[in-house]
């Protein structure tokens, strides 16, 4: 277990796994998007504009899933002080911020024709916006220290504190009256979406998860090379001339 936290071992293992994550993204993503955006039947009420759900919902799920992963890496960084978990916090934050921004943007583009407004300050939209600020805060805090490892640990603490926002995002539509609708896809019980649309949504969600992993492994590998640039294994891995000297 601890063997995989060793930078050179992780670097190589991640390099082996990464292409498979990319392949899985395409295998799930291409049929889901082509079917969802083109062949799926239009919604009985919204017509064509509902198709943005095939982008919006997978992004929203990853925006929260990535946050849990970032907080988990943050806890590991604070407990074990391993370099890899500190780098993981920093690698996840920009990906999560990107997915959160996409969630907000696609939601706004859908909200204008459907609700009649780009933005309302209801509990769901506001808590998702807070999630974006949390990601940006983690990125900012990590870079606010001269010592990058101290910065990473401060950011890890913020990531853990922000964890309280996640149940608020998820349950906001049940706890309060919101303009945002309740959940369509349920793990327990029947989903409120017809099967002819639902499978593409679930496939798109899988694609988004695999894209997240693909992107994360790439960022982590790069962060590792930068953090360990003085070490011999980096020179050997990159087959630099200086390795022989």
């Amino acid at each position: 277990m601890t063997r995989y936290a060793s930078p050179p071992v992780f670097y190589r293992t991640a390099g082996l796994w990464r292409p498979w994550m990319g392949l899985a993204t395409l295998l799930f993503g291409v049929p889901a998007i082509v079917y969802g955006l083109y062949f799926a039947p239009p919604d009985y009420l919204q017509g064509e504009s509902y198709r943005i759900i095939f982008i919006h919902v997978p992004c929203a799920w990853v925006s929260m899933f990535a946050y849990v992963a970032m907080a988990g890496a943050g806890a590991a960084a604070l407990i074990w002080h391993t370099k890899l978990s500190e780098l993981a916090v920093l690698a996840i934050a920009p990906i999560g911020a990107g997915f959160t921004a996409l969630t907000l943007l696609t939601g706004m583009l859908w909200g204008r024709p459907t609700w009649g407004a780009y933005w309302v300050w209801d509990a769901r939209l506001t808590s998702e916006l807070v999630l974006l600020f949390l990601y940006l805060g983690v990125i900012g805090l990590a870079n606010a220290y001269g010592d990058s490892r101290r910065g990473a640990r401060a950011a890890a603490l913020l990531a853990l504190v922000g964890l309280v926002n996640l149940p608020i995002i998820h349950y906001s539509v049940r706890w309060w009256n919101t303009l945002h609708q309740g959940e369509t896809v349920r793990i327990f019980g029947e989903s409120s979406m017809h099967e002819s649309m639902l499978w593409a949504l679930l496939a798109a969600a899988m694609a988004a998860k695999f894209y997240f992993l693909w992107s994360l492994l790439g960022r982590l590998r790069l962060n590792l090379l930068i953090a360990e640039r003085e070490k011999g294994w980096v020179a050997r891995e990159l087959k630099l001339e200086s390795a022989d000297a």
Partner: peptide, 18 residues
């Protein structure tokens, strides 16, 4: 002064709704 439509969580093709 403003009226917004609230959408519910149901998604289905027109034939199914009919």
């Amino acid at each position: 002064t403003e009226v917004l439509a609230k959408h519910d969580e149901n998604y289905m093709p027109a034939e199914v709704a009919d």
